[in-house]
Amino acid sequence: MSRLRRLLVSGGVIAALLLPVAACDNGPSTTDDTTSPTTPTTSPVTESFSTQLFVGGSASRSFTAVKAGTATVTLVSAGTATTKVGFGLGVPDVLGSGCVFTRSSEAATAGTSFTLPVDAGTYCVRVYDVGALTSTITFSVTIIRP
């Protein structure tokens, strides 16, 4: 019985020494702290936006500039080479669901482009029928943003 008691006491001493250490969380250990390599954010970033434009319709897309820099939006294609559409760059319309323009053209054809210095923030592009479409077309826009 006294042997069992000694054993219990010894176990208690060990537990008393180990418990405070085990109960503390002092953050990551310095010995096995692994640092993953940081992937640098590439800038500028190019995004593409391609969809159909219906007669009398419009299509817009918002994008985020993560820092200040230069944004360029280009109407890469829109129906045939001579198809004219409305195309612009601006900011989301808080009174509606579209995009209010900073720069725009009502006679944009493939190749029409706008470049502006921008602050970090949310911007948008919109392509719309100005009344010239007689059938649905497919268009493509590239957005280069910081």
Partner: peptide
């Protein structure tokens, strides 16, 4: 405080400078 005149358009929606 930053203030940006981000859009100025005709009633048709076309941007003006």
């Amino acid at each position: 405080v930053s203030v940006t005149l981000a859009s100025l358009t005709k009633s048709s929606g076309t941007a003006v400078t």
